[in-house]
């Protein structure tokens, strides 16, 4: 009876699964030059060989926090050109970074880190929903959204509660 149970269990696992097992399918190779990480943060640790982003955030305080868009590329084997385009809440282009040319020699690089930033002072007049588009060799790589909010302390003083001295 144990053998019958074992056979039935095997049948259940194999035939019961919705499909037929195939041994002819070759695993697909990973696409080269993949984006490993893209992060919005307030600070960057530049003390290491590779840059390290600070805590990932999506809200930045106007006039206080710089907005940093950090990028980590893996397995770069040819020249790549990176560009960041920053769009303010009115959907107009606020800043376009210079083209960052990486690996002009075309050698294999296991990892590449890069970032672009907007200084806090530049955000004071543009609170609301922002977006940053990152282009790799003129092709959109990814796009991130973030919010610029009033500084918390200012917010409380101005909007919360009724001032009764």
């Amino acid at each position: 009876m144990k053998n019958v149970t074992l056979v039935l269990c095997c049948l259940y696992l194999i035939a019961g699964l919705p499909g037929c097992i195939s041994f002819k399918v070759e695993p697909l190779p990973d696409p080269a030059r993949i984006l490993r990480e893209v992060t919005l943060c307030r600070e960057i640790d530049e003390s290491q060989v590779l840059l390290e982003p600070g805590e990932a955030v999506t809200e930045f305080r106007s006039g206080k926090d710089p907005v940093i868009c950090f990028l980590y590329l893996k397995d770069v084997a040819q020249e790549v050109v990176l560009k960041w385009k920053w769009y303010s809440p009115d959907k107009n282009l606020f800043k376009e970074s210079d083209e960052a040319v990486i690996n002009q020699e075309g050698i294999y690089l296991e990892a590449v880190t890069a970032y672009d930033r907007i200084e806090p002072e530049a955000l004071t007049e543009h609170q609301g929903q922002w977006s940053v588009s990152i282009f790799l060799n003129d092709v959109l790589l990814t796009r991130l959204s973030f919010k610029v909010i009033p500084d918390a302390w200012q917010n409380q003083r101005l909007h919360v509660g009724r001032d009764i001295p």
């Binding site: 699964l17 919705p18 499909g19 097992i21 399918v25 695993p27």
Partner: peptide
């Protein structure tokens, strides 16, 4: 279609069609 499964990043079973 022509699916290869990965468990914890390791290639596992392959299927010609899988839901």
């Amino acid at each position: 279609f022509e699916v290869t499964f990965y468990v914890e990043g390791l290639p596992s079973l392959s299927f010609s069609r899988f839901k």
